[in-house]
């Protein structure tokens, strides 16, 4: 019999393909909801309220909120997709097959998280295209923009993957995105520049990791940022590395996967 390739690229591809097929089955629901929600944000914040707001650092308010809005949706969707992708096999019991297969944790994570990341990036680009109908967009650093997008998407998909393994019920999967990520995003400068805050709150905001992600992403659009781009990149990488370490530990110990 032929030997299993190392790394088992066929397994990675099989998982990726399986997950993408799942996304494609529900593509219209997956894309319609965020597109409609984002459009509503533009109508309310961009047109209704935005017309009464001044430009921030020379950027019209409607355009200013685009990067924050994209990330807001991407955070929750990444977590949801990736957590569901691994929680569902645990829930139905089909996880036995992955556990008994000749695959390493790298191949499993790359397959699941890679597919979820692909979906998140596509979603972000669709929202970006939707936004271009409402406001004049300008992207000064398109390559950095894509790099930030992919890095942030994979980071939050990793987070979602960990949440999916940790969760013992569908309700538990909602806790982190609802109670932690969404508030931090609203407070993280998605709709304002933290320079607009009183000094004390501004200092406080610097402890919010989301600030660095949004700031760096906004810089790739308009060349302006609340914190330095280097700090943003470092924070994003740090976040990514911490999650990788957690995932590595989960697979090494079999935590919540194996008895």
């Amino acid at each position: 019999m032929s030997a299993v390739p190392v790394p088992n690229h066929r397994a990675l591809w099989a998982i990726y393909r399986f997950e993408m097929a799942r996304f494609l089955r529900t593509i219209w629901q997956s894309l319609a909801t965020p597109v409609i929600t984002t459009s509503l944000y533009f109508v309310v914040f961009g047109s209704a309220i935005g017309s009464r707001m001044g430009a921030i650092d020379g950027v019209e308010y409607g355009a200013f909120i685009v990067p924050g809005l994209i990330l807001l949706t991407m955070f929750t969707e990444s977590i949801f997709n990736a957590s569901f992708g691994i929680y569902f096999p645990k829930f139905t019991g089909t996880i036995y097959e992955v556990l008994s297969a000749p695959v390493s944790s790298f191949e499993v994570v790359a397959g699941y998280v890679g597919a979820a990341t692909t979906k998140s990036v596509v979603l972000a680009l669709v929202i970006l295209a939707t936004a271009s109908f409402f406001v004049d967009l300008r992207i000064e650093h398109p390559v950095w923009m894509l790099a930030f997008l992919v890095l942030v998407a994979s980071t939050f998909c990793l987070l979602g993957f960990v949440i999916g393994i940790w969760s013992k019920s569908f309700e538990q999967m909602q806790i982190v995105p609802m109670l932690v990520i969404t508030p931090l995003t609203f407070l993280g400068g998605a709709f304002y520049s933290i320079d607009m805050l009183p000094p004390m709150w501004r200092t406080f905001s610097l402890f919010n990791p989301i600030v660095y992600l949004i700031s760096g992403f906004r810089w790739s659009f308009y060349g302006q940022s609340d914190v330095s781009v280097g700090a943003s990149l470092a924070a994003t990488f740090a976040f990514f590395s911490v999650l990788l370490a957690i995932v590595w530990w989960v697979f090494r110990t079999g935590w919540r996967l194996k008895n």
Binding site: S2, V4, P5, N8, R10, A11, W13, A14, I15, R17, F18, E97, V98, A101, P102, V103
Partner: peptide, 8 residues
């Protein structure tokens, strides 16, 4: 999927 998962 199963066949791919087992590296064949």
């Amino acid at each position: 999927f199963s066949r791919g998962l087992f590296g064949r």
